[in-house]
Simulated scan of single mutants.
Amino acid sequence: MITPYQQAGYRVRVDWGPQGADAVGAGAALVAVVDVLSFTTALTVAADQGIEVFPYRWRDARAFEFARSHDALLAVGRSEVGPAHPVSLSPATIRSAAGVRRLVLPSPNGSAITQRLAEAGATVVGVSLRNAAAAAAWTVAHLAGADDAVVAVVAAGERWRADDTLRPAVEDLWGAGAFVGALAGHGFGPLSPEAEVAAAAYQRVAGRLPQALQDCASGRELIGYGYPQDVAIAAEVAGSRVVPVLEGVSFRPQRLA
Rank of each mutant, 00 (worst) to 15 (best):
S79Q: 12
L222A: 03
D215S: 11
V153Q: 12
F39Y: 14
P190Q: 10
G110R: 02
T139G: 13
V87R: 05
V180F: 14
I113K: 05
P228R: 06
D60L: 06
A176Q: 02
A182W: 07
P86F: 09
V180Y: 13
P108W: 02
W16V: 01
T40E: 10
A61V: 10
D35C: 11
V45T: 05
V124H: 07
A61D: 15
W160F: 04
A198L: 09
P210A: 01
G187P: 01
L105K: 04
V150H: 08
A72T: 08
S250E: 07
G50S: 08
R220A: 13
R95T: 08
V170H: 03
A149T: 14
S38N: 08
L143A: 06
T3S: 15
V197Q: 13
Y10F: 15
V125N: 04
H85Q: 09
F179G: 06
V124K: 05
A184C: 11
N109Q: 02
A67Y: 01
V153G: 13
V24R: 05
W58P: 00
M1S: 14
A8T: 13
F54E: 07
V104L: 02
F251P: 14
G219Y: 03
E236Y: 01
F66T: 01
A146N: 14
L173T: 14
S69H: 12
V237I: 12
A133V: 12
T44W: 00
Q6Y: 07
E236S: 05
L143W: 05
A32Q: 14
S192Q: 03
E52G: 00
A97M: 07
A8V: 13
A212L: 03
R101C: 05
A67W: 03
G50T: 05
A212C: 02
R161A: 13
T123S: 14
V127E: 13
H186D: 07
V53L: 08
A122G: 11
D230V: 12
Q254V: 15
A162G: 02
R102V: 09
P4H: 03
L213C: 06
A8Y: 11
Q7I: 06
G224C: 02
A141M: 00
A162P: 00
A182H: 07
Y202A: 08
H85T: 15
A122L: 14
A26W: 12
Y10H: 15
F251M: 14
I2G: 08
G17L: 04
A28H: 13
L117K: 08
L73D: 04
L73A: 10
R102D: 11
G121Y: 12
G187R: 02
P190E: 11
V53S: 11
A169P: 02
L43N: 09
I2K: 10
G20E: 04
P55K: 08
V14N: 04
I223N: 01
V151N: 10
L105C: 04
A118H: 06
F66K: 03
I113D: 09
A169L: 05
G185T: 13
V197C: 03
P83C: 00
P244I: 05
L30T: 11
R161P: 00
Y225K: 12
F188K: 10
A182V: 09
I2M: 10
A98H: 13
E171P: 09
G189T: 06
G185N: 14
Y227P: 06
E52T: 15
P55H: 09
W160Y: 10
G27L: 05
A61N: 10
L37T: 04
A136I: 12
G27T: 03
Q254H: 15
A199L: 11
G110F: 04
C216L: 07
A118C: 07
G224N: 01
V36I: 15
D215M: 03
